[in-house]
Structure formats: C-alpha cells, structure tokens
Design a protein around this nucleic acid. Structure first.
Lengths: 120, 120
DNA sequence: TATACTAGTATACAATAGTATAGTAGTTAC
DNA sequence: GTAACTACTATACTATTGTATACTAGTATA
C-alpha cells in the first residue's frame, strides 16, 4: 500500500505515515469528539451551548474532550470578561481541515454500505 | 460543514453521513485494526504470519479483530484443506479502498504537524 | 514418546473510557 | 434571601478494551 504525499511515494509503514495517521485518529476517536467538531463547524460556541447542542453529553466529558482538542490544536478557547464570564470555543484552521478526512470516510462508508447490501 | 457526495450536498448531521462515518470509524478504531490492514495490504497472510508480522499482538486479539473485520466485510477468510490446516486472510475490495481514508488522514496529519511545529 | 507445527480458545486480570450525581464560585435578577 | 446564570470540577462508579498466561486438537517429524 503506497500513497502519494507531496509528489513522494510514501510507504504505509514509514514512521511519518504512522505518526500522521495516529494523530488523525487521536483527533476523531472517542464517543464525543466528532459531535463536538460537528457542532463547532457552524461557528463559535460557548460551553453551555455545546452542552445543549450535543444530546446526552455530561459537562465532565465535554470539558475533558475540549481540553484534549485544545491541546491538539483543533479547538481554540477564548475567555470573555463578561458577567458571568463566557468562554468561546472555535475550530482552528487545522480543525476545519479535518473535514477532508471526514469526507473520505463518508465516501468510503457509503460505497461500502452499498457493496455489503448487494452481497446480502 | 457540507460535503459533496455524488453531486449532492450532504449535511454533516444527515443520518446517512453519520452512519457512514461511524462505519469507517468501526473499521479503523482500536489498537490493532490498522496494523492488521497494513499487513494484509501486501497480500494474503496466514494467521501465524500475521502474528509474527504484528509485533506484540496476542493470538486472542488477532483472532478477535480478524473476526470483526470479517463480519464487517473488510477481510475474507479462506480455509485450506492442508495438513496442518492453513487459513488465509486477505482484504476484500472494500478493505483495499480504506486506503483512501488513510491517505486523507496522512495528508491531514502531515499538514497539521507542520502547523503545530511552526506555532511552537 | 516427545516435540513442533497449524489455528486458534479459556480464564483472569489490568487499563482505559465513559456515566451518574452532586458540588463549586462568582454575579445578577426577582 | 433565594434562585438562576456562567463554566466548570470532584468523587465514585460501570463498561469496554486490551493483556498475560496457559491451554486445546489434530497431524507430522525426530
């Protein structure tokens, strides 16, 4: 399995490849990361807005996942000096580009579903 | 966040989208699925070959993951009537196409790493 | 008879991921 | 003064995921 990255053939087992895939996996794995990213695609959101948007998430998980996403430079956190304090979360440019990965997943997923349906 | 699939704009929250992404996530999530798929990219492999190929995997996990991949139509299992019995595993066409998703992940991962490096 | 090969399975445990429920601190409206 | 808003945190638990170690069954070789 080979892949073209910046005009260079890269072997699936090359160190860079593995690290890059792992990084992408980190960002989208887990139960709540995609719902959070999905919700932030429509623009900035406050903590409580995300909590209301994402059905059944607990504040503990929301807080934990937002911290991880911030650490990984996917989400930017901004504190506003209002009363009460409001905190806004938004996707970084890198966070927005995850869309390309999701697109590839949707494309594969739909094709795969069709293949499986025809087989059965 | 919108995406183009077969000339139709599909909303990120549409049922089909969510199911398709979840399906793709199922196939690549977990500690051992990518190493297994990676190893099978080079062609058919027997159980013991995979076990030797994939450093530190236990037969329990290899067996479990192969079963899941087979259930999801990513891997095909063929039993050969030799002595001792040999079993071959190979990627289905759908399994091979997961490469497109991995490519998108590599591309994003490499770009993201560069952005993060420049920032720090 | 003992060892090694095939492809796994069984049991018990450890580690990680996620849930449920309640509480914090500071300010504002009733 | 009490309730409600903000953005969380703390504690204790359950569930899922992965590990470690040993074992099975059938055949072939030394």
């Amino acid at each position: 399995m080979e892949t073209l990255v910046e005009n260079q053939k890269v072997h699936i087992c090359s160190g860079e490849f593995v690290i890059a895939v792992r990084e992408a996996m980190n960002v989208i794995s887990g139960k709540w990361k995609l719902p959070i990213i999905g919700s932030l695609c429509y623009g900035k959101k406050r903590f409580k807005e995300l909590e209301r948007d994402i059905s059944k998430i607990t504040p503990r998980m929301l807080s934990k996942e937002l911290k991880e996403l911030e650490l990984n430079s996917i989400v930017k956190r901004t504190v506003h000096d209002t009363t009460p304090v409001t905190v806004e979360y938004e996707l970084t440019p890198s966070g927005k580009k995850i869309k390309n990965v999701l697109d590839a997943m949707v494309k594969w997923g739909l094709e795969h579903r069709e293949v499986v349906m025809v087989e059965e």
